[in-house]
Simulated assay, not measured.
Amino acid sequence: MTKSVNWKPVLEKFEKRLSDLKARVLSFGGQLTLINSVLNSLPLYFFSLFRAPPSVLHKLECARRIELDNLGINFTKAFKKEIGNGKDTRFWLDSWLIDTPLCERFSRLFRLDPVPNTSVQDRLMRSGEICSGSWNWVREPRGRTDAELNELMRLLQDFSTNNSGDDRWRWSLGANETVAHAIFQCQNEVWNRVYDWFGLSRVTLNLSNAFLGRTSIQSTEEGARVWQAVEWTCDYLIWKNRNKKVFKNSSWNPPVALNEIQIKSFEWISKRCKTLEIDWHSWLTNPKKFIM
């Protein structure tokens, strides 16, 4: 099983499972589950018995990225590895030192490494808190390749790790971004439009209060549930469209956001609140009467 040709039946099985007609009618979550099942679970038996050649691992990774790209997901942009011992992170093929895999930024160097699937642990030398490279080139870098090596070495000098624990994936929300920041502060204009739509004064929103349905608005018990449904609709749509921005690079402007919130909140409330008589025109023009 050391030759790539011996792995051809395995690769063909992956392709058959992923190209199954039934897979194309699954939901987004269903397709994502299928991809992970095929590309993570199926090879478990073979990998437990045989060591796959780098070319086979590369083909499997390409298959994963193609299928994820078809779903509009670019995990190399959305996720980054946090390095512990470096054992489970691929030096060239995973995003860990910068926001993209090193094989894309340093393509000439990547072609000189005889082990393209090598780990961070194998390529990183640590002396105290200082990191440097442990190389095994097929030939010495020169010219533009040498310039790439110098740039890579500068990046490694600024890199630090505690050299303990397992590596783990981290969602690249941003260094200081939290869920509360993503939902409230980043979408401040959307919330302003929602409050203006209801004719209410804007209040400072708190994440726990929003999800628990607590509100400072004086209203009836039924009105409080209506406003809670509106807040939850905002939270849901803001988070959903933020994921679209991260994974699909799509935009969501405040006027469109308000329109979606109005439609979705009306659908949820009119279907679930059986004691409330609500019509679309009143919901658009005077929603405040439903919460007071």
Rank of each mutant, 00 (worst) to 15 (best):
N259D: 14
D69V: 09
P9Q: 03
Q185F: 06
L237P: 03
E221Q: 11
I83W: 02
R24E: 10
K240Q: 14
E267C: 08
G213P: 00
P287L: 04
W197M: 04
K8T: 10
A210N: 08
C62V: 15
C186K: 13
K240A: 14
S132A: 09
L68D: 01
K59A: 12
D99E: 14
D69H: 15
D69G: 15
R111Y: 06
N243I: 11
C103L: 05
T178F: 01
E221R: 14
Q187Y: 02
L156T: 06
F198H: 05
L284S: 05
R242D: 10
S251Q: 10
L102A: 03
V190I: 15
N241L: 06
P9F: 01
K248Q: 14
F198A: 01
F46S: 11
V5K: 11
L276R: 05
F159N: 00
A180F: 08
L34A: 00
W137N: 08
I291Q: 09
W7K: 03
K248Y: 09
K240T: 11
L97P: 00
W283Y: 00
K271V: 07
E148I: 03
V190C: 04
L71D: 01
Q262C: 14
N150I: 11
F79I: 02
R17W: 12
W239L: 10
W227Q: 07
N286E: 08
V120H: 00
T275D: 09
Q218S: 15
W169Y: 05
K244E: 15
P141I: 07
W92A: 00
L112R: 01
L276I: 14
R170Y: 14
L149G: 00
S208G: 11
Q157M: 13
N36V: 06
E221F: 10
Q187G: 02
P43E: 00
V5F: 12
V120M: 02
V138T: 15
P114V: 08
G165D: 09
T285P: 06
P116A: 03
A224F: 03
F28V: 15
W227I: 04
Q262G: 06
K271C: 15
S4E: 11
W283C: 04
K3D: 04
L39S: 02
